[in-house]
Nucleic acid binder design. Structure first.
Lengths: 219, 219
DNA sequence: AACCGCCTCCGCCGTGCGGGGGAGAGCTGT
DNA sequence: ACAGCTCTCCCCCGCACGGCGGAGGCGGTT
């Protein structure tokens, strides 16, 4: 626990917010504020320079907003820091964009001090805890709301279509079986039927066919 | 801090996992394991009975899976507990469903002990920290939009990107090898790297990730 | 009744796949 | 000179996958 402290960079256009955050974080022995930035562009350069563990990034900032700054940092650095987006409103539309470009999480400005500190510690030393990369695919996931009638769709039975949809979410046969409440052998039968009817050689080709034909759609 | 302990219910079909979780949590003075369940149906009834603060819910369970158990608990209780989904794979498709039905978060089984404890404490006493209720509106509200650059695309090497593209056309390893003019063993190495970096369990999940992230597009 | 499509499940079996190592060559930046 | 990354290739191993054939039940159609 008493190793090197968690190095944090604060990016917010309001000085008051920055100092508030700094006061909170400086009170913690294992956290060190390594830099500050007041614009998105500044944030990018400061982060590149000091190479922190965590960045607290405001969404609304002049020149470049927090989203694009996040995007640039994650895209251009080889070992990028974990970026926590700081926002005022829970339903801020920016939040969704932040998640999509790869932010590790977000905190509300009205959060209690210890919640903020918890968040920093959490993202600093866990790359797989609450809502990781998976969330970023969520938007795409739920956009699958458009049946487009592929040529072979009519030939698939209801059950086979169910199985194909679950295959296209990356599930293994045993998992599909659990989901549908049937035995693994049954799933294998349906999978075989799907492969035959779609002309696919394996489940991967079947999933590709499902995407390409519009049977299922990405975001 | 020294009020009533956080009461936790463990739901997992494997006894070993349950005891492991129990050992970890019992070591914490402010956490108390109030009950265990080995099936989804049992989880629902146990949770109703002991009324815990937090439920650690496995996704894969007999009778009723963790998703439906979560759904039932949240739907039928007036003050439902916070439910943390426990999963093995970061990209487990169940995760999306878990979020949609209202899970508070999820942890990976390979997480460190203190990460688990942090997660329990976090969800127990914060309803507005990392990824709160707002995320659940994501599926409904923020259905479409462009995924932009996937966070892992930058981390793929040129060769790995080549391999992923060929994987996404349905080619087997040997075929990719022939296409790239290298040996099959080399392709296997690249495939393994792609799986690791995308968090995919097998080539099918990797291809799905490629589609969903916009790395490749249908048509 | 006879037929047929669909769903459910059971074996057996070969193999491609993915995890776990390791290793050498080349190239870059310090 | 050295570390670090990438690309190349090798081994062993366990297992999920997919191909094969077979079977029973159930509901429609003829």
């Amino acid at each position: 626990m008493t190793g090197t402290p968690i190095r944090v960079v604060l990016a917010d256009d309001e000085r008051m917010v920055r100092t508030a955050l700094r006061v909170i974080l400086d009170a913690e022995p294992d956290v060190e504020v390594a830099g500050e930035a007041s614009t998105g562009a500044e944030a990018v350069s400061v982060v590149r320079e000091v190479r922190p563990d965590v960045v607290l990034m405001d969404v609304r900032m002049p020149e470049i907003d927090g989203i694009r700054a996040t995007e640039q940092i994650l895209a251009t650095m080889e070992r990028p820091p974990r970026i926590v987006v700081v926002t005022t409103f829970e339903n801020d539309a920016y939040v969704y964009d932040a998640l999509r470009v790869g932010a590790a999480g977000f905190v509300l400005k009205r959060s209690a001090a210890d919640e903020l500190v918890s968040a920093v510690r959490l993202v600093a030393r866990s790359d797989s805890l609450l809502y990781p990369a998976a969330v970023r695919g969520l938007a795409a996931e739920h956009a699958r709301r458009r049946p487009a009638a592929p040529p072979w769709a009519a030939r698939l039975t209801d059950r086979e279509a169910d199985v194909l949809r679950l295959m296209a979410t990356g599930l293994a046969n045993a998992e599909i079986a659990g989901r549908l409440g049937v035995g693994p052998a049954t799933v294998k039968t349906h999978v075989a039927a799907v492969l035959a009817k779609t002309g696919a050689r394996d489940r991967t080709q079947a999933v590709i066919a499902a995407y390409e034909s519009g049977f299922i759609t990405p975001g």
